[in-house]
Design a protein around this nucleic acid. Structure first.
Length: 217
DNA sequence: ATGACGATTTACT
DNA sequence: GTAAATCGTCATA
């Protein structure tokens, strides 16, 4: 039986939240009513004011990152590189500015719709299942996530929300969790660029790129 | 008002 | 491996 997570489950530090989200299911209900979903298999933790790589570093607070300061369970969706969206799960206390970036999903429901949404110049039929959601911007494209969903409550929303399937989470826990350095944050400096704040399901085939070797979980 | 910069992806050499 | 695509946001003036 699946259930939505409790808010207290996300009211934790970003690293704990990022690790915890592995094995959770992200569900998107399109305006058409189609249900899309995928299991979270890769995340990154962003630690807030202290973290040079975080959008909330130094307490920066603007219209763009406002939702990152909201309550745990809020979706922080941002637009970058002039063309891509990425989605985070806000965690910790209100005003803390911490979150976990969702970097890859194993697609479970609505693969045809995902293919349609992801298809650009290449034909949809040529997109392999492993290409659908293997990156933070890819999964947003595949699930139709954009700034319109910034700030929605992932615990109560009917358009974008989290579900926990105990069977899936048990299977993920059995596979083990690996930690590695976060991707694409070189400019944040060596200390933060090398911090082991990326979490992956060990050896999972749907990652954005190979995971690291670390403690099992 | 302006300029530099992305928590990326894709195509191409 | 490298480079282009593409534009909202933010710091500076």
């Amino acid at each position: 039986m699946t259930a939505r997570p409790e808010r207290t489950w996300l009211n934790v530090d970003a690293a704990t939240c990022a690790e915890r989200l592995l094995g959770a299911t992200l569900v998107r209900i399109l305006p058409t009513g189609e249900r899309l979903s995928g299991v979270v298999v890769e995340t990154e933790a962003y630690l807030g004011a202290e973290d040079r790589a975080a959008h909330t570093f130094g307490g920066r607070r603007t219209a763009r990152n406002e939702s990152m300061y909201a309550q745990a369970g809020t979706a922080y969706v941002y637009f970058t590189y002039g063309m891509h969206h990425c989605v985070n799960v806000v965690c910790g206390r209100i005003g803390e500015g911490t979150a976990a970036l969702v970097r890859a999903l194993e697609p479970r429901e609505g693969l045809d719709a995902m293919r349609r949404l992801r298809a650009g110049k290449i034909s949809a039929s040529r997109l392999r299942d492993t290409d659908l959601c293997s990156g933070p911007a890819k999964l947003c494209r595949a699930m139709g996530i954009d700034r319109a969903l910034d700030g929605v409550d992932l615990l109560t929303s009917s358009s974008l929300f989290l579900e926990i399937d105990p069977v899936i989470r048990t299977r993920v826990a059995g596979a083990g969790i690996a930690r590695s350095s976060r991707i694409g944050i070189e400019s944040a400096g060596e200390e933060w660029a090398s911090a082991p704040l990326r979490f992956t399901v060990r050896g999972h085939p749907f990652l954005s790129r190979p995971g690291g070797h670390g403690a099992s979980g």
